[in-house]
Design a protein around this nucleic acid. Structure first.
Length: 422
RNA sequence: GGGGAGGUCGCAUAGUGGCCUAGUGCGGCGGUUUGCUAAACCGCUACAGGGGCAACCCUGUCGAGGGUUCGAAUCCCUCCCUCCCCGCCA
């Protein structure tokens, strides 16, 4: 959610920034109209309430009689008026909130204009788009030959875009998760294990709703939704709280499965495990002061890059342009690893500073100084890393001419010392 | 699933229709006093919204939402959560 005060005070600036995303300026005017109407009605109803409070108090001290009855009758009328105005105000506030929830975050000055992902500049790269000395196989062939992934069984259990990991395939994923978590602990994050289902409000807070409604699984009976990323529960960990400045920063890391319907990308990436309805991810999440949040974004990015580096995967980092950056984000880096079997760069991490966008939605504040007014804090999120794609890159980069796969050195202790999958 | 007890200010508690502008204690902050510390004493002690240049004033919030009433922490309804007892069970 954007700062209402900013919209009120600099509507033209807000419109101009939103125009970079082809957001209609009328949406901003709509918010302003609601705001004006709200204050107008509020003034009326609050005056009436003050009057009623004062007269009611006077009534309590009056002796029974016609004068008292007259005042009670008068207040009965005022009460009816208040009820009508209260209803009015509530409707206006709901309209305003709904309009506010539809507005995306404003971009950081660094964010370049661009139509789509092809306009994201590469700002850093380690390793290259290498080819192997033999004909590289895509991961779905390698994994099936080695018995690491069973695609048909996944379909049998849950339909298309589900798969079963087996043997060293399952173990490789578990080892990678474990290693990633341990790495992030060393980098200064506190591990968190959250529910994998959440209330609807939690999805509004992180900004998945309203935009991704069709991409989320939910249970009608309980009203609970399956998380599409750990970012969702992590955002609301401290919602409605007021944190003390000395508690900040808070850095969390969480492993969760992620559930996405992927209806929006039906037909894309149907082979292999690149895009499934269920996948695992290790996610980093930061709660920071506004002054430090951009320094924290650089740490987040560097911590995510370290994952790819230590796994020995060629990677590059892009700065997302206006055409590709997420709804809530002010600035986002994507980290991609090279997959020589498929011959493409795979996005394995997306590191974003959403500034106060989620904090406002989650009512998440901190007190800068003892006794000072609470302020919204900044939150950041970044994958570290997304599992299936990391596994794809490991399999495709570490494949041998004979179809076996070397286990990256850092993972071997987590694989019971297994060095080669064959 | 059944039965019972609860949810009040950071914590603990008081409050069964108007004396609540939510009291008291603890903790916390500031001050007085003081060689230093402590004690004692005094004051402050939430969040949101609206009005005003400002001092300040007003509105709302006692788990949430409705209702009754001139007036609700207090009465009624629904829901959520916590604790205890019983039953059932991966």
């Amino acid at each position: 959610m954007l700062d209402l005060k900013l919209i009120r005070e600099q509507p033209d600036y807000v419109k101009q920034q939103l125009a970079r995303f082809a957001v209609e300026p009328a949406l901003v005017d709509q918010v302003l109209a609601f705001d004006e109407a709200r204050r107008q009605q509020l003034r009326k109803v609050e005056d009436l309430k003050a009057q009623r409070n004062a007269v009611s108090k006077a009534i309590s001290k009056m002796a029974p009689g016609p004068e008292r009855e007259a005042q009670i009758a008068a207040m009965r009328a005022v009460g009816a008026e208040i009820a009508a105005l209260d209803k009015d105000v509530a409707a206006i506030e709901e309209g305003q909130r709904n309009a506010m929830l539809e507005l995306r975050n404003l971009p950081h000055p660094d964010v370049p204009d661009g139509a789509d992902d092809s306009a994201n500049p590469v700002i850093y790269q380690e390793g290259e788009e290498r080819t192997l000395s033999f004909a590289a196989q895509p991961h779905w062939e390698l994994a099936e030959q080695l018995g690491m992934i069973h695609f048909e069984q996944g379909v049998k259990l849950a339909g298309s875009r589900f798969y079963v990991l087996r043997g060293l395939g399952a173990r490789l994923q578990r080892a990678t998760i474990q290693w990633l978590l341990d790495l992030h602990l060393r980098q200064g994050y506190t591990e968190v294990y959250t529910p994998f289902v959440v209330k609807e409000q939690v999805l509004w807070a992180s900004g998945q709703l309203p935009k991704f409604r069709d991409n989320l699984y939910r249970d009608e009976e309980s009203g609970l939704w399956l998380v599409p990323t750990a970012e969702v529960p992590l955002t609301s960990l401290y919602s409605d709280d007021i944190l003390n400045a000395d508690q900040l920063p808070i850095y969390h890391v969480a492993y969760t499965p992620c559930f996405r319907k992927e209806q929006l990308s039906a037909g894309r990436d149907v082979r292999g495990i690149k895009r499934g309805h269920q996948f695992d991810k290790v996610e980093m999440y930061m709660f920071e002061t506004p002054e430090r949040s951009y320094a924290a974004l650089e740490k987040l990015r560097s911590d995510a890059e370290e994952c790819a580096r230590l796994l020995g995967l060629p990677f590059r980092t892009k700065l997302l342009c206006t055409g590709d950056i997420g709804f809530g984000s002010a600035k986002t880096y994507d980290i991609e690893v090279w997959a020589p079997g498929q011959g493409e760069w795979l996005e394995v991490s997306s590191c974003s500073n959403v500034e106060a966008f989620q904090a406002r939605r989650a009512n998440l504040r901190y007190r800068p100084e003892p006794g000072a007014k609470p302020e919204f804090l900044h939150t950041l999120n970044g994958s570290g890393l997304g599992l299936p794609r990391t596994i794809i890159a490991i399999m495709e980069n570490y494949q041998q001419a004979d179809g076996s796969i070397l286990v990256p050195e850092v993972l071997r202790p987590y694989m019971g010392g297994v060095e080669v999958i064959r």
